[in-house]
Write a protein that binds this DNA or RNA. Structure first.
Lengths: 343, 343
DNA sequence: ACTGCCAATAAAAACCTTTTTACAACTTTC
DNA sequence: GAAAGTTGTAAAAAGGTTTTTATTGGCAGT
């Protein structure tokens, strides 16, 4: 059906319709006044020639690419998928596209942002930042495009910013053990102590157990990373020795991977999970519902992060937003089985 | 450090260096002959002004965007992440970018391809196709860009094509039960019977059990979809009644999700997995190693698919490739615990 | 009937490169 | 020492839009 062979330009349409190219442009973009009869003739020509405006020329002329850059440290995991989902949805709904770049480490991130912004490859950039944000943002320097930073509080930099309230999330997870299960003691098993998420979550945990007269000291265990193996190791070596028979305990894990490791380690040691020790994870990742024991976890509204990030860029592009905005999203407790509820 | 305020053009550089813009272009792109002294002056000016060629203008002039479109039906799951990983890696290594589009359903896919190709938003497109490929490819019509189709054999369409040998994969999985475990009977639990992957895998399964004198009839069970719940249901209702005590069985599942469902269902019925019934999954997804019983599964080289897809587009763009190419990649058995090995 | 205004459209400028063509100023070559 | 080739650079064209400015014809007001 389509006539193949590309490159039918606005000039061709103009010639066929017997008008000037500016008239074609006005018809196609639906602006300015055009006589109904002229409009009809142009539309006819557009259809007949199967004209599609050359987006490269449009980009040059309009000084924008209708593209938003999304820079992430990694493609795997629930987080990226959901972020992508939200960002893509919002972007497409506004005629924009998403260009994805992976950048791990400070240097790579600086390079990625610069690469996208400098030549005007994008109209705005969403940057997922983990540690070392100061170095990255310094390296990026004055950017000429809207930049939204995810996951790190970059207050000082006067940038749009989206955060998850990790502290509150961990607080609520811990509170669930205290309020809904009669635990006598609680533990936090995290990822790396250098990871900001972990430290915030640990803080929320500490806040929640304090009213019980418990001190965080000796109840928080950190490892190398957010991983199944670290969870397994920490639970075997640190948590297990503290479990006394006849008592009920709660473990708040740094994320779902760690939670899985913790559960399996305790089970391997002969502890009954969740009857004797309940476990709550973090992130509500895919694995939380794909195990025999469904994991109670804190859901992070990652899709919403993606949506909001794109909205922020759109707002800034359209001049709607004036001041840098910080949006803090709440994590939500999803009660399943591993805490001891239900089953 | 960067002077902010964008829009320093090649003209500015030319003026500062005291040369013409064509000379600047030749220096920046490192082509043609330029006197060493001139080169030095230009490079100096470039650095001083912090000049970055406007990529929009480049795109218009060069008639390419250095962007490859990646159209997928879904963002979640291992498959997308790994595909992205491979495609991004190969693309960036060749100065190209990846623009991601989600399109579910025939109409949406046609629209996505057309949208990307027609206005020259991309230089080539990778299209992940599930069912109904004829409708999609017909709707797309004559395209003016390299198009690589994944996962569906589109031989007739004279397009570049990447496939996984599902039949062989299932054959090997089944053979493993026969060769390494002394099973007396085997079952295949798949997703939907309309899914091409499923039917191919079922075929491989049938081929493998035939030499044992077993017939596929009554040994293959299909459900609505590739899901945990379907696996659980089919295992409870169809497989479990066929299990006799004292015998050893093997189940080849349509994918890892289904495998998980099968395992949990059988365990819930009191069957010993993997001692009495071994299970092998498909896809080597994340969940395969994040359960208590590690799942033996067929690894699909998804990252490689991404790499090869980009390479194909690059080859076609550079005119290296002449004829449409079909690449068939093999799935690989990853032996873990659920088949009965190891543990 | 003339000025002034408005609607509809055309013409031209701008966007910023890359690439082709043109042109000097030197080197060779015979 | 003139014709032919080389080298380094400038000028101009091309790429396809959008947007601004100009132009035309028709019509109302006086």
């Amino acid at each position: 059906m389509a006539t193949g062979s590309d490159s039918v330009t606005i000039h061709n349409v103009a010639k066929v319709a017997g008008v000037s190219i500016s008239t074609v442009s006005r018809v196609v973009n639906d602006l300015g006044r055009v006589a109904p009869s002229t409009r009809r003739r142009v539309e006819m020509a557009v259809r007949r020639l199967n004209f599609h405006p050359n987006s490269r020329a449009q980009a040059l002329s309009r000084k924008r690419t209708d593209t938003i850059g999304l820079i992430v440290p990694d493609f795997d995991g629930q987080y990226f998928s959901m972020l992508m989902e939200g960002a893509h949805e919002k972007a497409r709904a506004n005629g924009m596209h998403i260009m994805v770049l992976k950048a791990k480490g400070t240097e790579a991130k600086i390079e990625a942002v610069t690469h996208l912004c400098s030549g005007g490859r994008t109209d705005g950039v969403i940057l997922m930042l983990s540690e070392m944000y100061n170095e990255v943002l310094e390296g990026v320097g004055n950017i000429n495009q809207p930049l939204v930073v995810l996951d790190q509080d970059v207050n000082l930099w006067r940038l749009d910013n989206i955060l998850i309230d990790n502290k509150l999330g961990a607080f609520e997870a811990t509170r669930h053990f205290i309020a809904a299960h009669e635990v006598s003691d609680l533990f936090f098993v995290g990822g790396s102590e250098n990871n900001v998420d972990t430290t915030e979550r640990a803080l929320g945990f500490a806040d929640a157990i304090r009213p019980m007269g418990l001190d965080a000291e000796g109840r928080q265990f950190f490892g190398d990373s957010y991983s199944y193996d670290e969870g397994y190791r920490l639970a075997s070596e640190r948590v297990f020795p503290l479990i006394a028979p006849g008592q009920r305990y709660g473990v708040v894990a740094g994320n779902d991977d760690v939670a899985c490791g913790v559960i399996d380690a305790l089970m391997d040691k002969g502890i009954e999970v969740p009857q004797q020790v309940g476990v709550i994870g973090f992130d509500d990742s895919y694995i939380a519902v794909h195990r025999r024991l469904k994991i109670t976890t804190m859901h992070i509204p990652t899709k919403e992060i993606g949506r909001v990030a794109v909205r922020m860029i759109l707002d800034r592009l359209s001049g709607r937003a004036a001041e840098p905005t910080k949006v803090v999203l709440k994590a939500r407790l999803i009660v399943r089985e591993s805490c001891g509820c239900g089953k």
